[in-house]
Design a protein around this nucleic acid. Structure first.
Length: 432
RNA sequence: GGAGAGGUGGUCGAGCGGCUUAAGGCACUGGUCUUGAAAACCAGCGAUGGGGGGACUCAUCCGUGGGUUCAAAUCCCACCCUCUCCGCCA
């Protein structure tokens, strides 16, 4: 959410951002509603002023014992209240419409963001590592997972429905190893680790910008009237909701949590393997800082490079993309995605997403700080993936596979795998 | 799940139908005193929105939403949350 004052002064800029993000909203209409709201409110306030005055008079008369005039005054107030009733009703209506619309106003877009309509228009900024050349001998992660008895999608679907999976044996170790590696790196970088609630109230989702537009992506716990988060970004940002914080130094947090996404609207897409699943584990970084664009952009680079460092430790080829307007969400000001090479797709696939949201989330979440002059300001917030598994297992298994079917474990990961250097195929045990 | 207590500004906390325009303390800011600091004393100090060039001024805000009343932080109803005890439980 942007501040109304700011929207008024920059209505064209905001409208442009909406158009470029593909969000259907008319800022003009919003401002008309605001005008209407203010007019009605003025009327209500004037009437309330009169009522307050009369009521005070009644109080005074009562105390002095002069009861004579009281009935007359009471009737006057009753008249006012009757008028108020209809105007207040209209006001409420306009306010509701206005509030609903305000929740859909997008964040503006940074000047260096490429303009485009979909992920095809994202712009590559840099590549690190050499992609594996396509080779018929190569197996994809599903085949490798079966071969090593570490991924079982069929039984996952049998148990949990589409887009479900079991990890098994070494697969589980690997999954936990990449998480722990990422987590340790972030802690070393000074991020404070948190264990977070993944069942949250509606407010947390609205205030972090996931609702109302992303509602259909979110699982609801009907009886509890709570929701399952799709990212620990939600609880991490909400941690300081309605608080005044000290951001002389940026507040940096990380969490490792389960994430749940309904993936409504992507049926039929990425159905093969572990790419797009309903439940996964993600290590996330969230940063709160002063309302200073330079500082926040610096931090965006910092958290992005944290993610890159992890990919480098995993010895995976990747590229960094400047995400274009049409591929951005409502809340985003500036975004980098990291795509990791996935041999089975013969393409880079998105594994990380790094965003600067300015004060979009903190306005909704009401997270403020006092500046040098003692004035209250809204913080800026940023977030980025450190690692998300099992999606990262796709490039990890596929890029590190050897000709004999074994999988080389990157050095940095070995200590998290009890010193294991290589995964060798399990011998088929006679069990059927 | 059962019983009870409670939710008031940055924080603690009083108020429990009308001189509340939310007391008072703490914290914070400025000043006096002091070589400097502390202490003491004096002064200032909530948020949001509207009007005015401005000193100002008006409305709203006491967990949230309804209701009663001429008038609600205060009374009533529903919901949310916190704490204590009991029950259940990894």
């Amino acid at each position: 959410m942007l501040q109304l004052k700011w929207i008024k002064q920059n209505d064209e800029k905001v409208q442009t951002a909406a158009d470029q993000k593909g969000i259907n909203i008319s800022i003009k209409e919003l401002l008309i509603l605001d005008e209407e709201k203010r007019k009605l409110r003025k009327k209500v306030e004037d009437l309330r002023f009169k009522r307050n005055k009369l009521s005070q008079e009644i109080g005074l008369l009562k105390r002095s014992g002069e009861d004579g005039l009281i009935e007359e005054l009471k009737n006057k107030v009753k008249d006012i209240n009757e008028k108020l009733l209809t105007i207040e009703f209209d006001l409420k209506n306009v306010e509701n419409q206005f509030d609903e619309m305000m929740l859909q106003v997008p964040n503006i877009i940074s000047e260096d963001t490429p303009i485009g309509s979909s992920d095809k228009d994202n712009v590559e900024i840099r590549r690190v590592g050499e992609p594996m050349i396509e080779n018929k001998q190569l197996k994809d992660h599903v085949a490798l997972g079966e071969m090593h008895d570490m991924i079982d999608i069929a039984r996952g679907v049998k148990t949990g429905g589409s887009r479900s999976y079991f990890l098994k044996g070494i697969g589980v170790l690997l999954h936990r190893a990449v998480e722990q590696l990422a987590f340790d790196i972030l802690i070393k970088k000074g991020l404070t680790p948190l264990e977070v609630p993944v069942m949250v109230r509606t407010d947390a989702l609205t205030n972090t910008g996931y609702f109302p537009l992303g509602k259909d992506q979110t699982y609801k716990l009907v009886d509890e009237n709570k929701w399952l988060v799709g990212s620990s970004e939600v609880p991490l940002v909400s941690y300081y909701a309605n608080e005044i914080v000290d951001v002389d130094l940026p507040l940096k947090f990380s969490a490792s949590s389960k994430c749940f996404r309904s993936e409504v609207g992507s049926s039929g897409r990425d159905v093969h393997g572990l790419y797009r699943v309903h439940q996964f584990e993600k290590v996330e970084q969230v940063v709160l800082c002063k309302a200073d664009e330079e500082i926040s952009n610096q931090l965006l680079l910092e958290i992005t490079s944290n993610a890159e460092e992890i990919l480098q430790l995993l010895e995976l080829p990747y590229r960094v993309m400047a995400v274009c307007s049409g591929d951005m969400s409502q809340k985003t000001y500036k975004q980098f995605d990291i795509e990791t090479w996935m041999p089975s797709r013969n393409a880079y696939g998105e594994t990380h997403s790094s965003s600067n949201l300015l004060d979009f989330q903190t306005l909704r979440s009401n997270i403020r700080y006092r500046d040098e002059n003692g004035e209250l300001n809204f913080c800026y917030s940023l977030n980025n993936t450190a690692i998300a598994s099992p999606r990262i297992l796709i490039p990890l298994l596929e890029n590190h596979q050897q000709e004999d079917g074994s999988i080389q474990i990157p050095k940095a990961l070995q200590k998290y795998m009890n010193g294991m250097e290589k995964i060798v195929p399990v011998k088929m045990k006679c069990c059927k």
